[in-house]
Amino acid sequence: MNFTLKIWRQKDAKSAGKFVEYPIKNISPDTSFLEMLDILNNELIQKGEEPVAFDHDCREGICGMCSLHINGHAHGPSQAVTTCQMYMRKFKDGDTITIEPWRSAAFPVIRDLVVNRGAYDQILQAGGFVSVRTNSVPDGNAIPIPKADADESMDAAACIGCGACAATCKNGSAMLFVAARVSSLAKLPQGRVEGARRAKAMVAKMDELGFGNCTNTGACEAECPKAISIAHIARLNREFLSAKLKD
């Protein structure tokens, strides 16, 4: 398969960026998207040009590093997969593929397609943890948790913190990420006890870092590579509002 790649190139955070077109030929349909970028980079290095900088790590959809906006979609046109899990057979031979970094004020571009997603780490540090002592690993059957609650918690815990939600949201809101973290812990007894403190601290940090206000468009859910539901945002709203009203 042959493609024309239209890639955002930016030397560093302070430089102005621009799109550069690269033709790429003889790509197998079974090549993953990131492997295709590896092939492009090999060609660029052989020509003595700077390779395209892009984030990647596990390449199996769990680390949340591959953060590319491809043809108008976070993680590309496939549903509920990360960029690294997408294959070139998803595109048509001869397609022009536009690849951009996340566009959000809270995720500044560092170089080419790499953005600084440290803002999500700061939100997690503000309250996305459990401080209660849970001792050593107990017998799983000794903690009575209804299956529905465990399932819902696990669904929320599937969030990989890739930033697609805020990058997709027209408001630059990080609510789906924060909601997933709050919800995954709120549904379990160890996390429940600190639910109010967690919701208040994480929302305060999210607001402080300049993320936008959620207007319930649902675009984050549609583009989330882990298909995290906006029902978790409703839970975050409940957790936050009930905590504030008790203050």
């Binding site: 043809n71 549903q79 566009r103 004020a105 997709t168 206000n213 207007t215 549609a222």
Partner: peptide
């Protein structure tokens, strides 16, 4: 606030989102 959070540089290519 939302426009500010979105940043000054917009996506060159945008596409509709399923179910939105």
């Amino acid at each position: 606030q939302n426009r500010k959070a979105r940043g000054n540089v917009r996506y060159a290519v945008t596409s509709g989102h399923k179910g939105v």
